[in-house]
Amino acid sequence: MNERQRDLFLWVWSRRRKPGQTAIGLRGAAIGALGGLLFTLLMSPGAPSSVHSYDVGGQLFGAIGEHLRMLALAVPAFGAIGWFGANRIYASQEAMYQAILQSGARVPEQKPAMQMSDRGPAIAVGIVAAIIAIFIAVLFAMYW
């Protein structure tokens, strides 16, 4: 990490850490719970195979029961994954922040100016993420 990257990390993390670990963990849990809801909507099964096709009420309540069961399992599980992931990332970033400060570096007053060579990896990741998102959108369009 060069000095510009170090200063940018110090400047950015000094602002992102302000809500605190609990608030960031809860944000991660909320995002995970939304992921669990989306997972349920995409992957939830219909009515159980033991319900006959002519039993309209059984089909309806069987399907609702299966959706609710999957929702009850997926939302807390994904929420817990979000909570643990956010806490782990917060702890690692905070440890790196404290280590850099203890080495004698100071948080800059203004956001450091970055050069194109410093932004190259972020641009490459953005391009790859956009390509993956396009592929996912095409798969959804082909599925429906």
Rank of each mutant, 00 (worst) to 15 (best):
G79H: 10
G82W: 01
S53N: 13
V51M: 03
A113L: 11
R15Q: 02
V75G: 05
G32F: 05
F61W: 15
E3F: 04
G85H: 10
S14V: 02
F84E: 03
R69I: 05
D118W: 03
A63P: 00
P108G: 05
R106T: 07
G85F: 09
M43Q: 09
G25A: 12
G126K: 09
N87L: 15
E94C: 01
R15N: 02
I64Q: 00
F78E: 06
R88A: 12
I64V: 15
I123R: 10
V12L: 07
A47W: 01
R16K: 14
A105S: 11
P121L: 09
R6C: 08
D55R: 06
I127D: 06
V75D: 02
G32S: 05
Q93Y: 04
A122V: 04
G120P: 01
A99R: 13
V75W: 02
A129S: 11
S103A: 15
V51P: 04
F78T: 04
M70Y: 06
S92I: 09
L60T: 12
A95T: 11
V125H: 04
R17T: 02
I100L: 11
P48T: 06
A77Y: 15
Q115H: 12
G126A: 14
G79T: 08
S14T: 07
L37R: 07
A23K: 14
G57N: 12
F39A: 14
Q21H: 09
Q102Y: 03
H67L: 13
G65F: 00
S117T: 15
M70G: 03
L71W: 07
A124W: 09
V107M: 03
Q59S: 11
Q110T: 12
T22M: 12
V56E: 13
A47V: 02
F140P: 05
L71G: 01
G58A: 12
W83P: 00
A133V: 08
I127M: 13
I132K: 05
I31E: 03
G65N: 07
P108R: 07
L101R: 13
G35S: 14
M96L: 12
P45Q: 09
L139V: 08
D118Q: 09
G82R: 04
G79M: 11
R6Q: 08
Y54N: 11
P45V: 02
W83N: 05
A74S: 15
D7W: 00
K111S: 08
G25P: 02
M142F: 13
M70R: 12
Q59C: 01
P48M: 05
A113H: 13
L38F: 14
R106C: 02
G36Q: 08
D55T: 06
A124I: 13
W144I: 14
M43A: 12
K111M: 11
R4N: 10
G35P: 04
V128R: 01
T40D: 03
I89N: 06
L38G: 15
I123L: 15
V51G: 07
Q5T: 09
A133D: 07
Q5R: 11
R6F: 00
V56I: 15
L42Q: 08
A141Q: 12
A122G: 15
Q98M: 08
G79Y: 08
Y143E: 13
N2D: 14
P19R: 02
G36L: 06
A105H: 11
E3K: 09
M116T: 15
Q110I: 04
A99F: 06
D7R: 04
H67A: 12
E109P: 00
I136D: 07
G36H: 05
L38Q: 08
R69P: 01
L41N: 00
D55I: 04
M114R: 11
V125S: 08
A77Q: 07
